[in-house]
Computed example of a mutant assay.
Amino acid sequence: MVRRSGEATRQEIRAAAARLFRERGFARTSVRDIAAQAVTNPALVIRHFGTKELLFLDTMQFTIDDEPLLDVPLERFGERFVEVLLSDDDIRGVYLALVRGSNEAQIRARLQAVHERTFVEPVRARLEGPDADVRARIAAALVGGLLYALWVVEDEGLVKADRGELIAHYGALLQQALAGPTGPTSHRPTAAPPR
């Protein structure tokens, strides 16, 4: 058997852990499972990463490419944002792993940071006005709800829906959230005529 360097062993552990955490989640992945996949000793997993939770946090990084979001006019931003999120399978794996492990305090904190950095900030950066933060958070909540319905509960109707149609419908909802209650695309209920 060829002996690997410390860095090579570390990378093998990271790759095995990332794969198992995405497939099984945090709770159903053991240090022994990771070591077996990396063809190493469980003690080396702990030596290199400290704890399973720290290894999880090291390997479950959630990012999106902001570039496609900056190139579209604001009136098309909602649709483009949904399209970008749904086009990356890596996002799905990491999102599910974070949600499944969110009963652990550090993992929940990472999920909160991901929500802020990935869902709220790119949207807020495109908005103006005193209620920009609230509108960005509402839009982020809509996106989070879509990902939950698609990837956590696997809503059959949404999973089987035409992808382009889903992007168009959800993009329109996001545009409403971005516009706010007095925006040009909002549908404010009108008051009943006086009697």
Results as ranks from 00 to 15, higher is better:
residue 114 V to G: 09
residue 13 I to M: 05
residue 27 A to K: 14
residue 167 I to D: 01
residue 99 V to Y: 10
residue 125 A to R: 13
residue 58 D to N: 13
residue 158 L to V: 08
residue 193 P to Q: 13
residue 9 T to M: 12
residue 46 I to M: 06
residue 161 A to G: 01
residue 83 E to C: 02
residue 56 F to Y: 11
residue 47 R to K: 11
residue 55 L to K: 02
residue 127 L to W: 03
residue 139 A to P: 00
residue 150 L to W: 07
residue 80 R to S: 03
residue 62 F to Q: 00
residue 52 K to E: 03
residue 145 G to S: 12
residue 134 V to S: 03
residue 172 A to N: 13
residue 142 L to H: 11
residue 3 R to W: 03
residue 170 Y to M: 11
residue 66 D to I: 07
residue 161 A to P: 06
residue 153 V to C: 00
residue 160 K to M: 05
residue 38 A to Q: 11
residue 170 Y to T: 11
residue 181 P to T: 10
residue 78 G to V: 05
residue 111 L to P: 07
residue 18 A to V: 05
residue 158 L to R: 10
residue 168 A to R: 15
residue 39 V to A: 09
residue 184 P to L: 08
residue 169 H to S: 09
residue 101 G to I: 06
residue 83 E to N: 11
residue 117 R to H: 09
residue 66 D to Q: 06
residue 68 P to S: 03
residue 109 A to F: 14
residue 173 L to D: 07
residue 9 T to F: 03
residue 38 A to G: 05
residue 165 E to R: 13
residue 20 L to V: 01
residue 84 V to F: 04
residue 184 P to R: 13
residue 119 F to M: 15
residue 43 A to M: 11
residue 117 R to P: 06
residue 35 A to T: 04
residue 190 T to H: 08
residue 43 A to P: 01
residue 141 A to Y: 00
residue 37 Q to V: 01
residue 25 G to I: 04
residue 72 V to S: 03
residue 179 A to T: 13
residue 140 A to L: 04
residue 169 H to E: 11
residue 35 A to V: 15
residue 84 V to G: 04
residue 133 D to S: 10
residue 38 A to F: 08
residue 30 S to Y: 01
residue 58 D to S: 12
residue 156 E to T: 08
residue 2 V to A: 12
residue 143 V to Y: 04
residue 31 V to C: 05
residue 174 L to C: 02
residue 88 D to C: 06
residue 114 V to E: 06
residue 121 E to N: 13
residue 48 H to S: 12
residue 85 L to R: 10
residue 186 S to A: 15
residue 148 Y to W: 15
residue 53 E to N: 02
residue 45 V to N: 04
residue 74 L to F: 01
residue 111 L to T: 05
residue 36 A to N: 08
residue 145 G to T: 05
residue 164 G to P: 01
residue 59 T to C: 15
residue 14 R to I: 12
residue 26 F to M: 13
residue 25 G to V: 02
residue 70 L to P: 00
residue 140 A to P: 01
residue 140 A to C: 04
residue 187 H to R: 15
residue 55 L to I: 02
residue 85 L to N: 11
residue 165 E to W: 05
residue 24 R to Y: 07
residue 43 A to W: 06
residue 9 T to I: 15
residue 162 D to R: 11
residue 144 G to C: 06
residue 87 S to G: 12
residue 192 A to G: 14
residue 10 R to D: 03
residue 138 I to A: 07
residue 54 L to V: 00
residue 1 M to K: 14
residue 83 E to I: 02
residue 157 G to E: 14
residue 125 A to Y: 04
residue 22 R to E: 12
residue 18 A to R: 15
residue 31 V to Y: 03
residue 106 Q to I: 06
residue 165 E to F: 02
residue 167 I to E: 02
residue 75 E to F: 13
residue 64 I to G: 04
residue 84 V to P: 00
residue 150 L to Y: 09
residue 47 R to L: 09
residue 153 V to F: 00
residue 173 L to N: 12
residue 85 L to W: 07
residue 83 E to Q: 15
